[in-house]
Design a protein around this nucleic acid. Sequence first.
DNA 1: TCTCATGTTCAACGTTTATTGAACTATTCG
DNA 2: CGAATAGTTCAATAAACGTTGAACATGAGA
Lengths: 107, 107
Amino acid sequence: MVLDCLSDPIRLAIVYQLAQQERVSSELCCGDFSGLGGKSNLAYHFAKLRECGLMQTRLAGTNRFMRLRREDLDARFPGLLDAVISSAARDADRLQLLSGCDLVKVD
Amino acid sequence: MVLDCLSDPIRLAIVYQLAQQERVSSELCCGDFSGLGGKSNLAYHFAKLRECGLMQTRLAGTNRFMRLRREDLDARFPGLLDAVISSAARDADRLQLLSGCDLVKVD
DNA sequence: TCTCATGTTCAACGTTTATTGAACTATTCG
DNA sequence: CGAATAGTTCAATAAACGTTGAACATGAGA
């Protein structure tokens, strides 16, 4: 399930963006990914990412803030997330969907 | 492409079995995977694994021997293969398809 | 309260995917 | 040569997937 989740370019871009955000130890809300697709399409991908345990959602008012479930993932699939993220970073310029992902929430 | 390839249980089982075989530095031929499905179905999965660069096929008479493209994969996606293999090994008993994969070619 | 903004859910659609069996190619061995 | 073995290719089918827009739910703010 996890590998299938990560194999979709949009979901990989979401995970990649969440991983970048990890450094700042803050979260991202759905709207921050609007560059990757329409709202309903993103909601579909968010659901898949939640189902397979890749990310977690925190409700705050009308926003939903999400973050990677880094610890759980590293415990269950050691090294997988880092390998995927670093490979994604390496090819970021080749993937249209990932270009611009280094941008941090403008706020 | 690689992640999508690895997300299928049959292909993951094939890769896992090939990884086990790596230790003995020998190869496996198509028939060795007959426990995972029918011939034509396996040929379909083999083609996908070849297309995304996960494995290589060597023709020898009427047999086709295959092996993981370990070096190329480690160069392009560092740590990915090891992470996937070790996670697969960890859950091997939970996955029906992977049970019995530790068996080495009987010959 | 009324309205706007943020997300989710649902139904519909076209595409891709995995699986099957039959037909086919090619090699070995008698 | 003829039969058997090892795999691939092809066509058909059913299921799963990604995408879209419309409808819905919910909280914030005037």
